[in-house]
Computed example of a mutant assay.
Amino acid sequence: MKIKKNDEVIVIAGKDKGATGKVIRAIPKEERVVVEGVNLIKKHKKANPAGGQQGEVVTKEAPIHVSNVAIVEDGNPVRVGYRFEEDGTKVRISRRTGKDI
C-alpha cells in the first residue's frame, strides 16, 4: 500500500470528495485507511447500569478504501511511485514532481 500512517491525503471519490485530513490508521490487509474527520459514522453505545455508564451516540471515523484517497503535495493530489537508492532502500516519490515524500 502506497499510503501510510501520518500522510496528508485528499478524498478523490465518495461522499466526502474534496476533504483533506491526516491518516490515523492504515489497514493494508483490507486496503483501507482511516482519515481524520472523513467518513464519519454514528455509533450507538448501549447503557451499562451495573457499571454506571449511560447510553450515548459517539461520532467516529470509519475506514475508507485506499483507492478513494490521494496524497496531497502543495495542495494538489499526487500519485505515488518508488525509487531505489544506491544502498538498496526503497523511497516513495511524487509522480508529479519527482520529489521524495
Rank of each mutant, 00 (worst) to 15 (best):
99 K>Y: 10
45 K>G: 07
22 K>D: 02
38 V>I: 13
25 R>H: 09
2 K>V: 09
73 E>N: 09
99 K>F: 08
29 K>L: 02
9 V>T: 06
34 V>P: 01
50 A>R: 15
45 K>R: 13
69 V>I: 15
17 K>S: 10
67 S>C: 04
19 A>P: 02
13 A>M: 12
20 T>F: 03
76 N>W: 07
3 I>A: 02
55 G>A: 13
1 M>E: 10
39 N>E: 01
47 A>V: 05
35 V>Y: 00
8 E>H: 13
36 E>V: 01
14 G>R: 05
78 V>C: 06
11 V>Y: 02
37 G>M: 03
72 V>N: 08
5 K>D: 13
44 H>Y: 10
85 E>S: 13
20 T>K: 14
78 V>M: 03
89 T>Y: 05
96 R>F: 05
45 K>D: 08
32 R>L: 07
37 G>V: 06
26 A>N: 09
3 I>Q: 02
59 T>L: 08
61 E>D: 10
55 G>K: 11
7 D>N: 14
44 H>L: 09
74 D>Q: 10
20 T>C: 08
34 V>H: 00
67 S>L: 09
30 E>L: 10
49 P>V: 12
94 S>G: 07
28 P>S: 07
63 P>I: 00
38 V>C: 07
70 A>Y: 01
46 K>A: 08
27 I>S: 02
99 K>E: 14
66 V>S: 04
63 P>R: 00
41 I>N: 02
63 P>V: 01
31 E>P: 01
47 A>P: 04
72 V>T: 14
42 K>E: 14
49 P>Q: 11
9 V>P: 06
43 K>W: 11
53 Q>M: 07
1 M>R: 06
28 P>W: 12
74 D>G: 02
85 E>A: 14
81 G>D: 14
7 D>K: 09
61 E>W: 01
96 R>P: 01
63 P>K: 00
35 V>K: 00
93 I>R: 07
64 I>C: 04
76 N>S: 08
8 E>S: 10
49 P>G: 11
44 H>W: 05
51 G>F: 00
50 A>M: 14
57 V>E: 13
84 F>Y: 10
54 Q>R: 12
41 I>T: 08
92 R>N: 13
35 V>S: 02
27 I>E: 03
52 G>V: 11
38 V>Y: 03
67 S>A: 09
22 K>A: 04
92 R>K: 15
68 N>G: 04
66 V>K: 03
100 D>V: 12
97 T>D: 06
79 R>N: 15
53 Q>I: 03
82 Y>P: 00
62 A>K: 04
69 V>R: 06
99 K>Q: 12
58 V>R: 14
74 D>S: 08
41 I>V: 15
90 K>D: 04
43 K>L: 14
89 T>K: 15
3 I>R: 02
60 K>T: 15
3 I>H: 04
23 V>F: 03
80 V>R: 09
60 K>E: 14
97 T>C: 04
33 V>T: 00
38 V>R: 06
24 I>F: 02
77 P>T: 03
86 E>R: 01
80 V>S: 12
19 A>Q: 13
77 P>N: 03
61 E>V: 04
98 G>K: 06
76 N>P: 00
83 R>G: 09
64 I>E: 01
36 E>T: 01
54 Q>N: 12
1 M>S: 13
34 V>D: 00
56 E>W: 11
7 D>Q: 11
66 V>Q: 03
61 E>G: 05
15 K>N: 11
24 I>V: 11
43 K>Q: 12
30 E>H: 04
43 K>V: 15
19 A>I: 09
